[in-house]
Structure formats: C-alpha cells, structure tokens
Design a binder for these strands. Structure first.
Lengths: 228, 228
DNA sequence: ATTTGCCAACCTGTATGCAGCTATGGTGTG
DNA sequence: CACACCATAGCTGCATACAGGTTGGCAAAT
C-alpha cells in the first residue's frame, strides 16, 4: 500500500496497515475540521477515494465511532459528532490530570530524542509566522504531542494521553482561529520551556508545562464560548 | 440471541446491539480465563456458536484487539494476549491514580443508588462463603465496579476507569485462586468501608478505599509472581 | 537419520450481493 | 393552499465468495 504513509505516526499497538491508514487519514480530517461536526460520510464514497472496498472503510469508521469521533446510524450514514460542551469540559479536566501524572512515569532515556525533535519544531514554528497556515500549525502540535507522549514510560497512561489528545484537539481547533496569534506565541513559549526542562532532564516539569498550556487553551476556549 | 444479555452492563456509548453482545460475551470469557492467554479463536467457529456470519464476529474481535485483550494475525487467527508483566505493572499503577482521581469528580446524586447496590452485594457475598465459586465472585466484583464507576461524574475518567478495569481484572483473576479466602475477606471489608463512605456521602473516600484495595491485590499478585 | 523444500489445508483480509431501514420528495386529498 | 401519505432512492448491516498468507506435515535429497 502506502509507500511512506506510516511514518511519524505513533504505533502504540500497530494494527493492520491498510485499515489503520484510512483510520488515521479520516481522524486527521475530522480533527482538522475539514470534516466539520454534523457532516455525513458515505462508505461507498470513501471506498472510492481510497480505492478499496467498503469493508476496510467500515472498519476504520467503527474505530472512529469507538473513539467517539463519529456516530453511525443505520440507513443514514456516519456523521461527525458535535462538540458536546459537557464532554468537552470533562475531557479537558481529565487531560490536565493526565499531564500532571506524566512526571510520575518518566522515560528518561527518551529525553534526548525529544529534545532534538523540539528544536526542529522551534525552527518550523518561526518559519510559520505570519502565514496563518492552520494545517501546518496543527501538524506541529501533533508532532509535539507525539514527542512528549514518548516521554511517558507507562503504557496505559500513554495510550490514554493519546486517546484524549485527539478528542480535545478537535474541539480546541474549532475556536483557534480567533486566537491564532496568541496560540502561536503560546506554542513558542511552550516549546522553549519544554526544551529547557528537557535539557535539565526534568520530565516531571515537561508534564507541568504541558498542563499549564492546556489550561491556557482551556481558558481561551471557555471565554470564547461565553462570549458567543 | 441473548434474551436479557444487555442488562446491568454499562452503556457508556451504546454501539450496535448484536456486535456488542458478542463483544461482551467474549470479553467476559477472556476476563474469566475461560479463554486462557494464548488460546486461538477461529472466526468461523464463533460465528457458528452465535448463529451469525463472520462479519459481526470480526467486528467484536476487532474491538477486543483495540482493547488489548486479543491479537489477530493474518493467516493464523485471533489469540488471547498473554499477561505481559510490564503492561501489568503499568496498568495497576495507572489504576491506582485513576481511583485517587475519582473524588475530584463526584456524582453525588448517584450515591444512594450505589449504596443500595452495595448492600445487595454484601448479602450475596455472605451467601458465597465456603463455595469457592470463582465465576460468581468475579461477577460480584464486576457489579461493584459498575456501581463505583457510576459515582464518577467525568465521562472521560469513567471510560478510562472502565477500560483498564477489564484489562486488570483478567490478570488479577489468574492468581486469585491462591488467595481466594483472603480476597473474599478483603472484598467484604471493601464493601463495608464503601458502604460507610456512601452513608457519609463522601465519594472521595470511596475512591481512596478502592485505591487501597487495588494496592492490596497488587501486593498479593506481586508476591505471587516473585514466588513463582 | 537429518535436513530441506514443497504442497495442501486452514485462517484471516477483502470484495461484493442482498436485505432492512431511513429520509425525502412528490402526489393526492381535505 | 395545507397536510398527510406513500413510493423511491440511498444508506448501513449482514452474509458470502474469493484472494492472500501461514503453518504443519510429508517426501525427497543429502
């Protein structure tokens, strides 16, 4: 199949290749809001696009539903779920706790690799200034998440951290446009702070930094919601 | 199919009926060790048993794999995953943290219902003394888990709590036979303590009680592992 | 006797046909 | 003109046929 499709995406438990490729592609589209909430997806349509039959597409859609990103109804189709404010609040509160927990299971030997990744991301971030390229920005966050995720030595926490990152990122992305410059500056700060923590080998600090910036984003989203 | 199969099992995000029934049946068999680790399951065989085609069976098996309970390899079959000691330690450590977190998201209005459930479980537990009925004992733990799970007001935490309960229960069950009387007494204590906490409306205490008894079980499993 | 190569049976992954369900637009009636 | 009903198109859920992959055993060569 894909020549280099499964590159820097995480492989916590690498399942089948083809289905997973479709799953990740659709997941990213949903999180990028290219598939906005409420949009109806057809299995036949997707099968044509990926040049496969309906079967693998169905498998991918079932995984998405299991992740809470879509909802499939018989006779209708698979629609992207909306952003339930309650679920949103729960997910963010939970993510705060998860990040705080990160320092209790540090994978110290991963710190150097993470640091070099962070430095690369810093360069790419400065190249991004003034472009307002949402997708590149999200991709950057995506890779930051993976880099920090590898710093967690506990498999269960790592899986959960990953799972709710995607659910949260989708919601967060829907309001980011109004705060693009702020988020850009915030991400620059976060990268700086994380780089410093990694140089000191202090993974617990990385978790707290992440926790704080999640809280910052949460605050912005909350104020946007109350404003609207 | 099952006439009353979807009774007191949780419906965090109720998916399709038929597939979910098969999924729960297989999950319980795996957690009860009726399907021991390493056992090979055939799709055709299961399809015959449940009087359906391979398709819904495959969906259930994929969800089990996603939960980490099975592993499917092309040309071979679906085998029940073994108990990786590392994963075991990670899951237990993570569950400790989750239980401690429970009190931060208390669903106070659920406390009375939980209390009445606990009282029923206490009666059923005394009726269980001296019988060494593993399956009934596990069912009891199962229902205790659901009762306490409903006390969590945060959806994300509730889902995660549920998810890793099943992964842990399977491992824990594999060594329980050696400590049956101890676990029985321990469960009686846990029920008493939880009942007291619920009478006081102190859900945070419920979380800590649960955390402690998870730690007790962990200690027993660990000592058993080192002994073997 | 041991090793190596091959083949056949079996299992999963994929594609496709069919049945059941849902939504929508058109039509007939009040 | 408004409303209710029905037919129809399109979708998902399920069953099944086919293709690709793996394993174990048998046979032949060393």
């Amino acid at each position: 199949m894909g020549e280099s499709a499964t590159n820097e995406t995480s492989r916590i438990r690498a399942p089948r290749g083809q289905v997973t490729d479709i799953y990740r592609a659709l997941r990213d589209r949903i999180c990028l809001l290219r598939y906005p909430p409420g949009m109806l997806l057809g299995e036949h349509e997707l099968a044509e696009e990926f040049t496969v039959s309906r079967t693998p597409v169905r498998q991918a859609l079932q995984r998405l539903e299991y992740d809470g990103l879509t909802e499939t109804r018989n006779g209708v189709g698979t629609m992207v779920t909306g952003v339930d404010p309650n679920a949103f609040r729960d997910i963010y509160a939970f993510r705060l706790r998860l990040s705080e927990m990160m320092g209790e299971f540090p994978a110290e030997d991963e710190a150097p690799r993470a640091l070099s990744t962070i430095l690369l991301l810093q360069d790419r971030l400065v190249a991004l200034r003034g472009q307002r390229d949402m997708e590149a920005f999200w991709q950057l966050n995506h890779e930051l998440h993976h880099a920090t995720n590898r710093l967690i030595a506990n498999l269960a926490l790592r899986e959960t951290h990953e799972r709710y990152y995607f659910q949260a990122s989708r919601i967060w992305y829907s309001v980011i446009e109004a705060f693009f410059e702020e988020q850009l500056a915030d991400l620059a700060n976060e990268l700086n702070e994380i780089a410093g923590a990694l140089r000191a080998g202090d993974i617990r600090a990385v978790g707290y930094i992440q926790r704080n910036h999640i809280a910052f984003g949460l605050h912005r989203v909350a104020s946007a919601h109350t404003a609207v």
